[in-house]
Simulated scan of single mutants.
Amino acid sequence: MEFRDLKTQYKALKNNIAKAIFEVLDEGSYIMGRQVHELEKMLADYVGVKHCITCANGTDALTLALMVWGVKEGDAVFVPDFTFFATGEVVSFEGATPIFVDIDKDTFNMDPDKLEQSIQLVINEGKLNPKAIITVDLFGLPADYNKIEPIAKKYNLLLLEDGAQGFGGRIGDRKACSFGDIATTSFFPAKPLGCYGDGGAIFTNNDNWAEIIKSLRIHGKGKDKYDNVRIGMNSRLDTIQAAILIEKFKAFVEYELDEVNRIADIYTKELNGIVKTPVVPDGFYSSWAQYSIQCKDEAERNNLMEYLKQQGIPTMIYYNKPMSKQKAFSSEEYEPKFTITEQVSKTILSLPISPYLNNINLNNINTIIKGAI
């Protein structure tokens, strides 16, 4: 059994993907070919923003956003304490200070109340300049932008949506990667929309920022690649990956998103009351990058994980250590005390999920968990 069944997905899309790749090979434009621009337009139209700028990976996408905003030493950037390392890493990479914010116990996303408390703390201490907020659409569920966007405006902070796991999610009619001032996503293979390597994208409605990001991703180019007007980086999406993503995006929109939600609904129906199942608030829609349950304590979680492994069922722990506890951030003075993040990291367990998880395996997983608990 696969944790995220990319093999079955490939079999379903094999002919279309092969045709798309051979078109790139026939055309011979391997970097920034026409498929890159076609993909950018498709994704911008789907999300509902003016600009989509692709790049080499999701981490670069975050970095490019912070670069265009001029985030620097002395700035404070507020990030959730429960997420992948890259979200905090890019802040430190720009010389700024990540301020870790605790999460909501049900959604695992940044807690808006804790966010405002953290902002006020930094303002009152007066050591750092509050600059931006990076939210994360964790496991496919958009953060609570209904509450976070007003907080950003209240304190005049830039808002960056890290939609690496959230592409396809939405709140009401607003889709993930349309929130905040800039949004980013990742096309890492296991993401809701993934390629066969690394890839990423930046979304914004700001014309000026879009033009600067296009320059920054190609060595700060001006009118051509030998006219360099600013210090940038080399972060382009390969044409072959763009061609693959175009074909995978069609399947994503046509049936994958609906199917992964059907599977998540079955998990929740069967496991609710046995373990703590994920919460999707009213009006929210998840793209289910992960389906993550919570056990009553760390021992139960670890025992269940081992038992499922013995039955041939793969699981993962996202994430077993808060960001603030990572050694790389040990010098930061803004470390939360005992938090929801710390509790969740000891009890969370992610189960296999993908649009291609068949009903036999799904029922087997549910039956085994019920028996084990």
Score class of each variant (00 low, 15 high):
R301V: 03
A264T: 06
V279S: 09
V253E: 05
A299L: 13
L257I: 10
P322V: 09
L237R: 07
A289I: 02
K269N: 09
E247W: 03
S235P: 05
E298I: 01
E259F: 00
Q310V: 06
K269S: 11
E259D: 09
I240H: 05
Y285C: 07
R301T: 04
Q241L: 02
T268K: 13
K296Y: 04
K327H: 11
Y267Q: 06
A210W: 02
K276N: 08
V280S: 03
E300R: 07
Y307D: 11
R217F: 07
R217D: 08
M233R: 15
K225Q: 09
Q311W: 08
Y285E: 07
L271E: 03
Q326L: 14
F252W: 06
Y255M: 04
W288A: 01
E256R: 10
D227F: 09
L245K: 01
F249A: 00
Y255W: 15
F252M: 06
R230T: 12
E300P: 00
V260R: 06
L271A: 04
I266V: 15
T239R: 05
K327E: 14
K309M: 10
A243R: 01
R236F: 08
R301L: 03
N228F: 09
A289S: 15
Y291E: 04
K325M: 10
A243M: 00
E211V: 02
A299Y: 13
K309S: 12
Q294V: 08
I244A: 02
L237S: 03
N228G: 08
S215P: 08
Q294C: 11
Q290A: 14
I317A: 05
T277N: 03
P322W: 10
F252S: 00
V260I: 15
T268L: 05
E270M: 12
A251S: 15
H219G: 12
K321A: 11
Y307T: 12
M316K: 15
N228V: 15
T315D: 08
V229W: 09
F284H: 11
I213L: 08
D227A: 12
K214G: 07
T277Q: 03
L308R: 07
Y319V: 14
V253S: 00
I244P: 02
E259K: 15
M233V: 14
Q241T: 03
Y226D: 13
K250C: 00
N228E: 12
V253A: 01
V229L: 12
G312A: 10
Q241C: 01
I218E: 14
Y226A: 10
I231V: 14
K296T: 11
Q294F: 07
Y267D: 05
K296H: 04
W288P: 02
Q294Y: 11
L216W: 06
F252N: 03
T268S: 13
K225N: 10
A210E: 03
S286P: 03
L245Q: 00
D265A: 14
P314H: 05
E254N: 13
S286A: 12
A289R: 06
R301H: 06
N261G: 02
T268C: 06
K223T: 13
S286E: 02
C295N: 00
D258P: 00
K269Y: 07
V280A: 01
Y319Q: 11
R217M: 10
G220C: 08
N303Q: 12
I240P: 00
I212H: 03
K309T: 09
Q311N: 14
I212R: 13
G222D: 10
Q241Y: 12
Y318M: 14
I293K: 05
M316R: 15
Q310S: 14
G273Y: 04
D238L: 12
L271S: 04
N234M: 09
